[in-house]
Design a protein around this nucleic acid. Sequence first.
DNA 1: TTGAAAGCGCTAACAC
DNA 2: GTGTTAGCGCTTTCAA
Lengths: 359, 359
Amino acid sequence: MPRSSHTSGRPTLSKVAEAAGVSISTASLVFSGSGPVSERTRRRVLDAASHLGYAGPDPVARSLRQGRSGIIGVLIGERLLHAFRDPVAVALLDGLTEELAPAGFGLLLLSGSAGRVGPMPAQVDSAPLDAVVFASCGAEDESALASLRRRDVPVVGVEGPREADVPLVDIDNHGASVALVEHLLSLGHRKIEVVTLPLRLGGHRGWLHRSRRSVEGFANCVDRLRGVEDALGRGVTAWEAASGLVEEGWRGGHELLAVADSERPTAVVAQSDLLAVGVVQAARELGLRVPEDLSVVGFDGIDTPWLSPLRLTTVEQPMTEKGRVAGRMLRESLTGVRPDDVQLPTSFRVGTSSGPAPA
Amino acid sequence: MPRSSHTSGRPTLSKVAEAAGVSISTASLVFSGSGPVSERTRRRVLDAASHLGYAGPDPVARSLRQGRSGIIGVLIGERLLHAFRDPVAVALLDGLTEELAPAGFGLLLLSGSAGRVGPMPAQVDSAPLDAVVFASCGAEDESALASLRRRDVPVVGVEGPREADVPLVDIDNHGASVALVEHLLSLGHRKIEVVTLPLRLGGHRGWLHRSRRSVEGFANCVDRLRGVEDALGRGVTAWEAASGLVEEGWRGGHELLAVADSERPTAVVAQSDLLAVGVVQAARELGLRVPEDLSVVGFDGIDTPWLSPLRLTTVEQPMTEKGRVAGRMLRESLTGVRPDDVQLPTSFRVGTSSGPAPA
DNA sequence: TTGAAAGCGCTAACAC
DNA sequence: GTGTTAGCGCTTTCAA
C-alpha cells in the first residue's frame, strides 16, 4: 500500500517491532540477517512489516550507525556532456561499477556543469562519501582534493593526480608513445606532428609549437607528448584539441594538413583513437590517402568499425580493467590500508593506418 | 563500538563546541548559518574548528536529522558502457546535473553491470535516495519501480515507464516519425524500411518483419515505429539494432541494403542519428550514393560532423532540456507535489541525406 | 544570543 | 533467542 506523502508517517523499525510484539533489536536482526532469530519470530516480524508497508531499514540511519554510506564519489571535473563522450571514461565507469556494485556501493557523480570547471564544492563537501575516485586526471581539482583530505575521505586516482597521498592506477603513457613514434621512424617518417588531448580543463584549443620546453597539464597528455619528443629527440609541433572527440581530431587534422605539401607532416600522432579517426577523415577530405600519403596513429584501442576496412595503428590500453582495479583499490582503502600504485600493461598494435613515409 | 578506522578520531561538532567553550547547538548554528550568532562566538567556533581540523557537519548525520540525503538516483538499466555511448542519454544527465547540482543534489548511478540487466536490487533498496529518475524508458524495471514505491521514493520518468504514478517528460515520438515518413513519401519513396533502437534491454538484434501486429517494448521505440507505420498505412519491415550506436546502424544497413536491387529500399528510417550514420556508411560501402540512390533519415539532431558535408535529415529533440525539465520535476516532487507531465517540442529538419526516390 | 534537551532510525555490545 | 541500553552526529524546538 503506497502512502501518499513521504514525509508523514512512514513506518519505522520500532513500529514494526511493536506490531510484531518483539523488541526493536530483534526486529533489526531479522532485517540485517546477522544473528540468530527463531523462524517463528522472523515470520511475525516480516508479516508485521509487510502489513505496515515497511520497506526495510532506513539507509541513512543505518549509515549513521555503521559509519559508512555505501557511496563512492566519481570526480569528473567537466560536464558530463564532454566527459562521457569519451569511451575511455565510460569504460572506466563501467569497470568501477563491475567491481563496486556487487559490493553494495553506488557511484555518485561529482561533475562540472554548464559554466563551471570542476564539481560544485558544496557537493564534494556535503555528500555522504565513503571514498572518491579521481576519474579525470585533474591537476585542476586541488580544491576538491583539499576538501576530501580534510574530511578524511580516501581518494584513488586514475592517471592522476600525482600527489603523495593519492594511490594511482596508471599506464605507461610515455613508453607507449615512444613505441608509436619508433614505429613511425622505422617506416621512414621524419615529419611527425601531434594532436593532443586537452592539457587542462576548460575547452581551450590551439597550437603548441615546440612544446618541449613549456608544456604542463594533465599527466597523461603530457606524458604522451614527452614520449613523442623523447623518441624524436626534439620538440614537436602539436595542436591541442578541446576534447578527445572525433570532431576535434577532424579540426586538428585540418590545421595540421591543410598546408603546402612541403610543410605537411607525413605522420600524425593523435593522443586518442577518436582524435585519430577525425584526423583520418580530415585527411581524406583533403585528398590524402591513409596510409599512402599520411600515416595516422592513435591511442586507446577502441573499436572504430566505421573506419573499416582501415584499422588504426594504436596502443591498446585496458580501459575497463582500469576501472576494476580502481574499484578494488577503493575497497582496499576503505579498510584503512593505503593501496599500492598499480601500473597496467598496454600493447602496441600495428594496423593499416600507418605505412612507409611517402617518397 | 569500533567505527571504520579512517573515521575513528575525526572531530565532531560537540568537540568543536567544547573547545570553543560554547554549546553544541550554538556551534551548529555557526555552520548551518541559520540563526543569530554573535560575531565573537562565530569566530571562536570557527577557530576551534580549523584548529581541530573539523571539516563541517557530517552529511549522514545531517541527512538523518533533516530527512533528506541530497541524492537523486538515475536508473540506467544497462551497462554504462552501452548507455553512455548514446549522446542522448549523456545529454540527459548533463541537463539533470545543470538543474540539480546547484540545488545541492548529486546523481547516483543505478545501472546494470556485466552480466545483468537492470540495477542491483540491493542498491535500489538501500541507497539513501531522495528521488529517482528513470533514464532508460524501462518497462523492464518493474521490480525497481515496485521497490521505490514501497519506500515512497518519488519517481520521474523520461519517455517512460508509462505508469499512472510516474510523471513523465516526453516528446512526440509518434508525430515526429510521421513527419519524417511524410517527407519521404513526398519525395516519391515507397520502399521504406526501418532500423529500430533496441525494443528492450538485453542486446538482442534481428528482423521485425511486418512489425505492425506484434511489437512491444520501450515506449519511445514503439511509438516511432508506429509513427512510420501509420504514415505508411501498413506494417513495415524493420531490423532491430542491439544498441543505438553507429556500428549497429552499419550492421543494420548491411542487412537492409545488401540485397538484390529490386528488393532494396530506397529510403531507410533510422531511429537515431547514430544509427543513421552507420546506415550511410554501410550504403557507401555497398556503392550506394546518399541521397541519390538511398535516402536516410535519423532522429535526435545530434552533431554528425564526420559525415560532413552530408547533413542528416532528422528530427531534432531537446536532449539537454529533457534533463533540465526532469530535474525540475524531481525537485517539485520532493515538495510532495506530483508534477504534471511535460511534452517537449521537436522539430523536423531537412538535411541532405534525403532526396527524390531514384527512378 | 545562547543553552538544554529531545530525538532522527537504526545497530551492536552485552546481559539474560 | 531475545531484550536492554547506549549511542552514531547532528538540527531544532523551546526556554532562559
